[in-house]
Amino acid sequence: MKKNEVPQDESCLSKVNIKEVVYAVDEQGNYDKTLSSGWETKNKVLNESLELIEERLKETKEALLAGTASPIAYYMELHRMDVTILASYVGFWKFKVKRHLRPKVFARLKKRTLKKYAEVFDISVSELKNPKV
């Protein structure tokens, strides 16, 4: 990549005034650090991934309101987690966390268990029980 080819598109980084370092060659073919404000191609890829997260969140929200998913499922998606990550945060086995995503199981959870989840999601237990969606 040549220095004058380093993309200077707008990006979520440039919005907060961050430029990233890329390596590019000058006219003489010598390498140097160059700053890039962003690249349209990267935006596309990043947006796709964010859209997917949004979509999953929307679906889970609907499932929560329909009573087919527990608030834990909702907050898990809200924090961009999957079962594996959530399980390692709360310190339970994966199959246990999976069970907790079911509203019926969730309703029977002990306060101690709920507290663990609430801490991970940085909310109170009552908020976990009555999520603000």
């Binding site: 990549m1 380093v6 990233e20 890329v22 390596y23 590019a24 191609t41 990267k42 890829v45 990043l46």
Partner: peptide
Amino acid sequence: QLVRMQEEIGTGG
């Protein structure tokens, strides 16, 4: 995911 890993912050492109 592949493209992100390839181009994201930190790879220098």
